[in-house]
């Protein structure tokens, strides 16, 4: 087997890992802060991608503005849904949040299929990021390097914001003890809305990043939530760092499996999830409660 193939699959794994990381990070923030298992995380990823497609085709607005506008739009929609619907199930069992976001996912996806059908629509790679680098042992497309770089920057940035800044301190406090945090003058309900917006914006951002790589379709992201769920379980529910590290590792392992044992590559993530659940039920970075 040529090293070309191995490195090629590793890059694919790294790209997949990048998307897993951005999506799982948002998912972990939302489940930690709001206690909502957001099944619609993949839908906001699709909305991010579709948003950039619409901006380009209806308004002639290109990739770079879309990178900001599309996640922002997804976040606004998410915050509206949080205020009007999702916040009503906080006091109920987790299953209600899961069912509600599942319903939202079906509704949004259904609406897009109705208007746009399921066929993929191409989205061009921005001019500045066409071409690639010849590394000698392999060819690395510029856009793929850009995706990995951005995922690393955003993951580190989010981790830093949560661990080291004032808003992050407040988010952690609200995650740990929401009632008491309110008694310290902090408007926790507003903070939850904001946190949901951030989690959704990360998914939307991943969607814009994905648009030039995968074609844009209402179905994209539909099955990603299953992988995200596995990542968050393996990393440890609510652990931001755990989600990031696990997402990249599982992406890479999945890529390697494609070389070594292609038939099983789709299963790798879930086999690892099973093993981790058996050995360390709280996840690799989680704490036993």
């Amino acid at each position: 087997m040529s090293s070309q193939v191995i490195f090629g699959q590793l890059v694919v794994g790294l790209i997949n890992g990048s998307f897993y990381a951005l999506l799982s990070l948002g998912f972990a923030i939302i489940v930690g802060l709001l206690g909502i298992i957001n099944v619609a995380q993949g839908t906001f990823y699709m909305l991010g991608a579709f948003g950039s497609w619409m901006l380009l085709n209806y308004l002639g607005i290109g990739y770079w503005p879309a990178l900001v506008l599309s996640p922002l739009g997804a976040a606004l929609l998410g915050m509206l849904l949080e205020k009007t619907l999702i916040s009503r199930v906080y006091h109920l069992d987790h299953i209600y949040g899961l069912l509600l976001t599942y319903g939202l996912m079906m509704f949004i996806m259904g609406a897009f299929i109705y208007f746009y059908a399921t066929a993929g629509r191409p989205y061009p790679v921005p001019e500045e990021l066409r071409g690639g680098y010849d590394l000698g042992f392999m060819f690395l497309p510029k856009y793929r390097a850009w995706v990995v770089l951005m995922a690393v920057v955003f993951c580190f940035g989010t981790w830093y914001a949560i661990e080291k800044t004032a808003i992050g301190r407040t988010l952690r406090a609200a995650t740990e003890n929401p009632q008491l945090t309110r008694a310290f003058g902090i408007n926790v309900p507003a903070l939850l809305t904001f946190g949901f917006g951030v989690g959704v914006a990360l998914a939307g951002f991943a969607g814009v990043m994905a648009a030039p790589i995968y074609s844009v379709s209402p179905l994209m992201g539909g099955d990603l939530v299953i992988v995200i769920f596995a990542v968050v379980v393996v990393g440890g529910m609510g652990s931001i760092l755990g989600s990031i590290v696990t997402a990249f590792s599982l992406g890479l392992l999945e890529g390697l499996a494609k070389v070594v044992y292609p038939q099983g590559s789709n299963m790798v993530i879930f086999v690892i999830m099973l093993v981790v659940l058996l050995v360390k039920p709280a996840g690799l970075f989680g704490h036993e409660k």
């Binding site: 004032a166 301190r169 952690r172 406090a173 995650t175 740990e176 945090t181 003058g185 902090i186």
Partner: peptide
């Protein structure tokens, strides 16, 4: 708060 250090606990309110 377990997820905040002493200074962060102080600065929270």
């Amino acid at each position: 708060y377990a997820t905040l250090d002493v200074t962060e606990n102080l600065l929270l309110p």
